[in-house]
Design a protein around this nucleic acid. Structure first.
Length: 557
RNA sequence: UGGGGCGUAGCCAAGUGGUAAGGCAUCGGGUUUUGAUCCCGUGUAUCGCAGGUUCGAAUCCUGCCGCCCCAGCCA
């Protein structure tokens, strides 16, 4: 991919601005409000803002939009920084806060008042709402709309001095109460809040609103392109209005793009919070969460996320992207980077009746069949082995080429075995297989080159490592849980299954993502795992065309 | 019913007057000691609909339809 080729409408605009000489350098910003965790939807914005600046040799600010104390907390700031860094981006010394500009913002508000472009309104919140009109009816002017500049100045100073209670007054832009654009019906720009600010402390009791603070912060930082999501599109006239009124040195341009939604995932902060609060998930970084923290803990590589949003593209069309597209990116990345190992998730014992009682052989196994640089390892092989329950069927269909009574299968990197006897418990469940192995078929060194259709994975019983493995599935049953009236009704009750697995011994040293052959990609849980009680998370399954066949067979019946 | 956006295959997405890229998914096939990977091949897309302009329209014009956003002293 040639990054110097514009590939979306925003990049086209930006590259044109560079080409025309309108800007010598591109400056962008990623401006999260520190009132929650970043999720998959934010990844788009992060990659766009940091990406386009990096491509063009520009700069990006990480700006915390902290204009509403009481709803925001420093707890989230660290998480946001960590998430952005983990995704692979760097803001250098450009970590800022909207609160850094409180003084300048205040001065700008005073300027607006002096120009007669803002006034102190003393209506209550309810009254203001009533005066705003509706979507189809114009609003009506506040009786305070024509206060003198002097009176406005005096009142605003006293608001700032703390002479009034919350809600007693509000500073409003004086635009047009009859505008068909609701945002232009004299929007509030400063409100009184007697709450200490997480950064500014007790210095202020009035705080600027988003529309006022955001565009001006952009201007103060010399942002050239202020990229945001579609819901701010009809705020743009207001964004431009403030710039027109105040004529800051730099004039940023706001451009909107559509949010990225992923099927089966929720991205509402409120709902995400409910999942945590209600204990439906274990926390903000629960591997089922669509948060960056969750995806990170799950084991999604940051490069896979970047690739995902690159493939999704930047447009203005509402999108709901299939989860499979994300999973493909994860598999693509991990396929190249994850060493292969063997693990049995649902163990079934196999006894090789003709294998010497106490013998142990060490089988050489490739760590990555597609890349010899990964080297090899040795796997202990013995008389008693664990295989996957799914790899045996007593009454197997035609195309099932794993183990069945009287049938043969290859043990990966081991021998070909034949199933001679099926042992069941009183309940009629298969609990053990008696098999015989063919000594001539040892992997690599076999004197027989006979082939069998199937190859299955295994772990030696006496050498196996016990581990708890968490199998994650989508959190919701509905492709668009965001649209559900109540997300509880579409929760997938089986989004987590925990199994007692048997791992090959080398997995004791596992770090990073590994592939459990034929099963999927897994990684040690960074929080809950210990040497005594290892815990693995399933990142994503492998593609499974057998499962697909089975499904089709079921549907065909 | 006011304003702002958006409508190209199942999901994304190029294309901006010359006869519909690409990715994901799907479905075939080949390779394979992972039913993975890899490799080949695979799409009757009424380009939302209807008119119009033009030799020629996804692209221009008109009218309609559908979906999303806006009535916080949230962002």
């Amino acid at each position: 991919m040639n990054d110097s080729e514009p590939r979306d409408f925003i990049r086209k605009i930006i590259y044109d601005d560079l080409g025309s000489g309108k800007h010598a350098e591109i400056v962008t910003r990623f401006p999260p409000e520190p009132n929650g965790y970043l999720h998959v939807g934010h990844v788009m914005s992060i990659c766009l803002n940091f990406g386009v600046a990096a491509e063009t040799g520009g700069r990006t600010y990480l700006r915390l939009d902290d204009t509403n104390p009481g709803k925001e907390s420093p707890e989230y700031v660290e998480a946001i920084k960590e998430n952005v860094r983990w995704l692979g981006f760097d803001w250098d010394d450009r970590l800022t806060h909207a609160s850094d500009y409180f003084d300048r913002l205040y001065e700008s508000a005073v300027t607006l008042i002096e120009k007669g472009a803002a006034y102190v309104d003393s209506l209550s919140a309810e009254e203001i709402r009533e005066h705003r009109g509706t979507l189809t009816e114009p609003g009506t002017n506040s009786p305070y709309r024509n206060r003198s500049v002097e009176e406005n100045l005096d009142l605003f100073r006293r608001m700032r001095a703390g002479e009034f209670a919350d809600g007693e007054h509000v500073l409003r832009a004086r635009i047009d109460m009859a505008s068909p654009n609701m945002n232009l019906r004299d929007p509030a720009i400063y409100r009184i809040r007697h709450i200490p600010h997480q950064n500014a402390g007790d210095e202020w009791c009035i705080y600027p609103m988003y529309d006022f603070a955001h565009g001006l912060s952009d201007a103060f930082e010399g942002i050239t392109h202020s990229l945001c999501t579609l819901e701010f599109e009809d705020h743009r006239p207001l964004y431009d209005w403030f710039l027109d009124q105040l004529q800051p040195e730099h004039r940023p341009r706001q451009i909107e793009f559509s949010r990225l939604n992923v099927a089966y995932a929720i991205t509402s902060k409120r709902k995400l919070n409910a999942l945590v609060e209600e204990g439906i998930v274990s926390g903000w970084d629960d591997p089922r969460m669509p948060t960056i923290a969750g995806m990170r803990r799950r084991g999604y590589p940051p490069g896979a996320l970047r690739e995902f949003v690159r493939r999704a593209g930047v447009t203005k069309k509402d999108k709901l992207i299939e989860m499979g597209a994300l999973e493909t990116c994860v598999r693509d990345t991990l396929g190249d980077t994850a060493p292969r190992r063997m693990a049995v998730l649902r163990p079934l014992k196999v006894v090789l009746t003709n294998y010497p009682q106490d013998q142990v052989e060490f089988m050489e196994a490739m760590n990555h069949p597609g890349n010899p640089n990964f080297g090899t390892r040795e796997m202990p092989f013995s008389r008693e082995l664990w295989i996957e329950q799914d790899d045996f069927m007593e009454e197997a269909p035609r195309k099932f080429f794993r183990l069945k009574p009287g049938g043969e299968v290859r043990l990966r990197f081991g021998y070909i075995i034949r199933c001679d006897e099926v042992i069941k418990n009183d309940a009629g469940e298969v609990v053990e297989l008696r098999c015989s192995y063919d000594p001539d078929t040892r992997s690599g060194t076999g004197t027989s080159d006979r082939k069998v259709k199937g190859t299955i994975h295994w772990v030696s019983c006496q050498h196996a490592l016990d581990a708890s493995v968490r199998l994650y599935d989508r959190l919701f049953n509905d492709a668009n849980p965001n649209a559900a009236d109540d997300f509880h009704s579409v929760l997938n009750e089986k989004s987590l299954e925990i199994v007692a697995a048997k791992l090959e011994p080398s997995l004791a040293e596992a770090e990073g993502a590994v592939q459990f052959e034929r099963l999927g990609y897994f990684r040690v849980d960074p929080q809950d795992s210990s040497a005594e009680a290892p815990v693995f998370n399933r990142i994503v399954t492998l593609r499974d065309s057998w499962a697909k066949l089975e499904k089709q067979a079921l549907q065909g019946q």
